Simulated assay, not measured.
Amino acid sequence: MEPLSLMFSGAFMAATVLPGGSELLLFGFLTAKPQAWVGLLIAASLGNTLGAMTSYALGRVGRKVITPEKLASKSTSTSLNWLERYGYWALLLSWLPVIGDILCLLAGWLKLPLLPSSLMMLIGKTLRYGVFIGLFFGGSEMLV
Rank of each mutant, 00 (worst) to 15 (best):
E2C: 08
E2R: 00
E2V: 03
P3M: 06
L4F: 13
S5V: 10
M7K: 05
M7S: 01
F8K: 05
F8I: 00
F8M: 01
S9W: 13
G10D: 07
F12P: 07
M13V: 07
A15C: 06
A15I: 06
V17Y: 08
G20L: 04
G21F: 13
E23N: 12
E23Q: 11
L25C: 03
F27E: 12
F27Q: 14
G28S: 11
G28N: 08
G28P: 04
G28A: 11
F29Q: 02
A32W: 00
K33H: 12
P34T: 03
Q35T: 05
Q35N: 14
Q35W: 07
A36S: 11
W37Y: 15
W37G: 05
V38P: 08
G39D: 01
L41W: 13
L41V: 03
L41F: 07
L41N: 06
I42Q: 07
A43Q: 10
A43M: 04
A44V: 08
A44E: 07
A44M: 04
L46A: 05
L46C: 05
N48A: 11
T49A: 03
L50M: 11
G51P: 01
G51T: 05
A52P: 01
M53E: 04
Y56W: 15
Y56C: 00
A57L: 15
L58Q: 14
V61A: 13
G62A: 13
G62Q: 11
G62I: 10
K64I: 07
K64A: 13
V65P: 01
E69D: 13
L71G: 04
L71V: 13
A72F: 15
A72W: 11
K74P: 06
S75P: 11
T76P: 06
T78V: 14
S79F: 10
L80F: 10
N81R: 15
N81Q: 15
W82P: 04
L83F: 13
E84T: 03
R85T: 07
R85D: 00
Y86S: 07
Y88P: 00
Y88S: 01
Y88Q: 02
Y88A: 01
A90P: 03
L91H: 03
L92F: 00
L92M: 01
L93R: 12
S94A: 13
W95P: 06
L96T: 14
V98Y: 10
I99D: 07
I99S: 03
I99W: 12
I99E: 06
G100D: 03
D101S: 15
D101E: 09
D101H: 08
I102A: 08
I102L: 13
L103C: 08
L103D: 04
C104R: 03
L105D: 08
L105W: 11
L106P: 12
A107Y: 15
L110Y: 10
L110G: 08
K111Q: 12
P113A: 04
P113Q: 08
L114C: 02
L114G: 00
P116D: 00
P116Y: 14
S118C: 08
M120R: 00
M120L: 10
M120N: 00
I123Q: 01
G124E: 06
K125N: 13
T126R: 07
T126W: 04
L127G: 12
L127S: 11
R128D: 10
R128W: 09
Y129T: 04
V131N: 02
F132V: 15
F132Q: 02
F132N: 05
I133A: 06
G134L: 14
F136Q: 05
F136C: 02
F137T: 05
F137E: 00
F137R: 11
G138Q: 09
G138S: 12
G138L: 10
E141S: 13
E141I: 02
M142I: 12
